[in-house]
Amino acid sequence: MNKQSRYTLLPPHGRTNTPTRKPTMKQFRAAALFTVILTLLLPVMAMAQDSIIFEGKFYSSLQRTVVLPYSGTIVELLVTSGQTVNEGDIILSYELDTEAFPKIQQILNPIPVIDLNLQITTIQEKLTLLRRDYQEANQLAQEHLASPNEVTRIGQQIGSLDRQLALYQRKLDLLEQDYAEQQAMLVELFGEEILQEPTPEIVSLRSPINGQVLTINPGVRVNAEVGSGLAAVNVGVMDPLLLRAQLYESEVSRLSLGDTAEVTVDSLPGQTFEAVLTRINWSPVTLDLNQPSYYAIELTTDNPDLVLKEGYKAQVTFTLAQ
């Protein structure tokens, strides 16, 4: 009996006799469906590659806080949060504490300015007399009726007083500028009536800008006693709004001032807003070598209907040109 060979002979060229399977109809349909899906996704994928999407938050474009400069008692509160106000509109009125009156008078009639003006007047009068004496002494010295040393002495006195006068005048200019700013602040807060004599017991605080009332201090209520320095009301401009965010360096490098973006807000479903890139910082948030570089940016968004509020979180999409 022949021994069975340990080797299995293969057909020529390594082919097997296994029959080739043809694709089934199910496989054809799956391949066709994959092709359709890929065709639909390619434009979306391309669009995603040419877009920059990030989140930001809305901020008022300008804010001013109305601070109570003196302690007192609230008499009337004339605004509510969200109310539109114009510059100069009365926000609240309150009765001043007695300690406020001398402080106001110190600003309206500053004693340091009055004293310095008197000193300057005294120096000017002395200079007038010394200059007359100088002319007389100089004339006598030319006629050999007076010593030249006397002329020199009077001249030195005049020079010393001139320097003192110039120093006092500089001090006066600085003082007047300082008190003028304080007086302007009082008029801005209380109006022209604060300049009346005597100082009115009840004064009105006014809005410093056109805008909307953003916040009112919880302690500001009728008959409430309030201390000096209290931030009573915050007024801000809500149209336009600023949208602030931070972008990675590779994203910032693809944007330019004036680029427009589409903005959506989860709190306002179905609404879309347009924003314009108006600021790109040239220095990152941190320069730490071990930290990634993110740059602060600002966009400006029109808000004529005041539907957007400060603090709303938004999704921003920049679609870049191919």
Results as ranks from 00 to 15, higher is better:
E225P: 06
L145Q: 09
G258R: 08
M238Q: 12
Q164M: 10
R170M: 10
E197C: 09
A180H: 09
Q212L: 01
P198V: 01
E143R: 06
V252C: 02
V252T: 08
I216Y: 00
L230N: 05
G236N: 11
R254D: 04
G219S: 05
E136R: 10
E201M: 07
A166K: 02
R153V: 13
N149V: 07
Q139S: 15
V233S: 08
T215R: 08
L140C: 07
Q169S: 15
L161H: 05
P218A: 03
A180E: 12
G219E: 11
N138D: 15
L195A: 01
A137N: 13
A166S: 04
N210S: 10
F190P: 01
S204I: 04
R254N: 04
I158C: 11
Q139C: 06
I216W: 00
A261F: 05
I209D: 02
Y248P: 01
I158D: 09
S228R: 02
Q183W: 03
V233K: 00
T199R: 02
S253Q: 12
A180N: 12
Q212R: 12
R206L: 03
Y134R: 10
L205N: 06
N138I: 01
A180Q: 15
G191R: 01
V252I: 09
E225Q: 14
I158A: 10
E181F: 12
I216A: 07
E225D: 14
G229N: 06
D178S: 00
I209C: 03
D133Q: 15
L186K: 02
G155R: 15
Q196E: 11
A180K: 15
N234A: 13
A146R: 10
D173N: 00
V187M: 07
V237F: 02
I154N: 01
L161Y: 13
V233D: 06
L175Y: 14
L145N: 11
Q135F: 12
Q246M: 12
D173C: 01
L161S: 05
G258E: 11
Y134Q: 15
L257D: 05
L247G: 03
L214P: 10
T260C: 07
S228K: 06
R153W: 05
E136A: 08
P148M: 08
G159P: 06
L214G: 03
R163Y: 04
L167T: 06
Q196K: 11
L174N: 10
G191E: 02
A184H: 14
L230R: 03
G219D: 14
P198H: 04
E150G: 00
N217L: 04
E181Q: 14
E192N: 08
G258W: 09
D259A: 07
L140D: 04
V220N: 03
T199W: 13
L186S: 04
T215Q: 07
L257V: 03
L167N: 13
V222H: 03
N234C: 12
D178F: 03
N138H: 12
G155E: 15
S250E: 15
L174F: 13
Q196G: 03
L195V: 02
M185Q: 11
